[in-house]
Computed example of a mutant assay.
Amino acid sequence: MSEIQHQQVAVNGIDLSLYIAGPERGRPVWLLHGFPECWHSWREQIPALAAAGYRVFVPEMRGYGQTSAPPDIADYDLLTLCADIQRAMDLFGHRDVVMVGHDWGAVVAWHLALLEPVRITSLVTMSVPYAGRAKRPVVEIMRQLYADRFNYILYFQESGVAERELGADIERTLRLFMQDEDVFLQQKPVTATLLEGVVLPRKLPDWCSPQDLAVYVKTLAAGGFRGPLNWYRNFERNWQRTEFLAGKQVQQPTLFLIGDRDPVGVLEAHTLKRMPEVVPNLQQAVLENCGHWIQNEQGQKVNALLLGFLGTALSRSLRTQPNTLETPRSE
């Protein structure tokens, strides 16, 4: 981890914080984190990819850590989040990219693959599947399904409410998320709060040391939860702005990973079933005894699947002609 470099680059109207590792001539691999995570959630994948000859780019996504956190909800719509990464790829001169995403990072990665069918040549997504543009906004569907009981997506919609609860004790919030994934599936009244009735476990999970947790806490403390939660407040805007993608398939060779204990598998069962229709060049793997934080919980298995997939999906050697033109300043 000592060989990771940090850069701050100006793209798409924000300052984007980036962690970079691996040989400069290596094929670019972008690792996009989810909620409520940070670049450090890829701590096991970064050295493995770098050792295999890849040039690894790990952003702190918009609203997180040292990356800018604009105040307006509309500044976090999906196409804007994609544009952050697209403009950064432009800046570095990337022409042949592997895109990897987990959770909300997977949502961005799916759409980047649709927007960039030429220069994104391979795709790996984790935990959040994709089956095309919905017939109506997700939040509209949620309001119908959860009119009389709690749903975390609906709870996140009102500005200021969830950020006050989650930000009151950031370490406690993160520990609860890491160790009690069913917090998002709780059956309780519609008037409840997310963490209401959740008991804090006595110890951290095996995959997260106190030092790791400290990095997460520092990241979320930098800008709070408003920016990350604003990602959830754009479902209707996302649906409106992505109409031009309706009917398009993800054509790139794609690997999808999910844990058998991931609550997303319950929430997105229909999407999982339909995914091969929209992603024709798809490989899938379900990791046993694994929850939502897949790249940490079973880092070695994820690395083996990731590197094995890339070894067969890419059409040329890992170390060929340079495909980056790195000019941004180093910190």
Rank of each mutant, 00 (worst) to 15 (best):
L272N: 02
Q211I: 10
I85M: 12
L49D: 04
L18A: 08
Q283S: 13
V278Q: 12
L123V: 15
A88P: 06
T320A: 15
Q249L: 08
L325P: 00
G53M: 05
G22K: 05
H33A: 07
D212I: 07
G197W: 10
D180A: 08
L78H: 01
G247H: 12
A51N: 01
T125S: 14
Q179L: 10
L91K: 09
E181I: 02
A88C: 07
G308C: 07
G224R: 03
G101P: 00
T173H: 05
A74G: 13
V138N: 06
Y155S: 03
Q295M: 14
W39L: 01
R25V: 10
N238F: 05
H40P: 03
N296A: 15
A74L: 04
L16S: 10
E268R: 11
N281G: 02
F225Y: 13
T320R: 14
W207L: 03
R164E: 14
N230G: 00
P328M: 02
L115R: 15
L245A: 06
S68R: 00
A214E: 14
V139I: 15
Q321E: 15
L310S: 00
M99K: 05
R119W: 05
P280G: 04
Y232G: 03
G247V: 09
T312L: 05
F150P: 06
P263S: 01
Y146M: 04
R164L: 09
L32V: 04
T191A: 14
E165Q: 13
L306N: 08
H270V: 09
F184S: 02
C290D: 03
R319A: 15
D262Q: 05
F57V: 14
G93R: 12
C290N: 06
H111V: 11
V286H: 02
Q8P: 00
Q321M: 12
G160Q: 05
P263H: 01
A134N: 08
E196F: 04
W239S: 03
L185D: 13
R172W: 01
S2K: 13
E236P: 03
R202L: 12
L305R: 12
H6Q: 14
A246W: 08
I120C: 11
A52R: 11
E3I: 03
L79S: 11
R55M: 10
R27S: 03
V58R: 01
A50E: 01
A214T: 06
R329W: 06
T219I: 07
Q284G: 07
A113C: 08
G93L: 09
I73L: 12
Q7C: 10
W39G: 00
Y216G: 02
E196Q: 15
A168D: 14
S68W: 01
V183F: 06
A21K: 00
R175F: 07
G93D: 09
E171P: 09
L32Y: 03
A51Y: 00
C208W: 05
V107P: 04
Y232R: 05
E288M: 08
E116R: 13
K188M: 12
R172M: 00
Q252W: 09
L200H: 04
V139D: 13
T80V: 07
V198K: 15
I141L: 13
I170W: 08
I258C: 12
E243L: 09
V97T: 14
D103C: 00
I20V: 15
G105H: 04
M126K: 06
C290S: 10
V56Y: 03
V9G: 10
T324I: 08
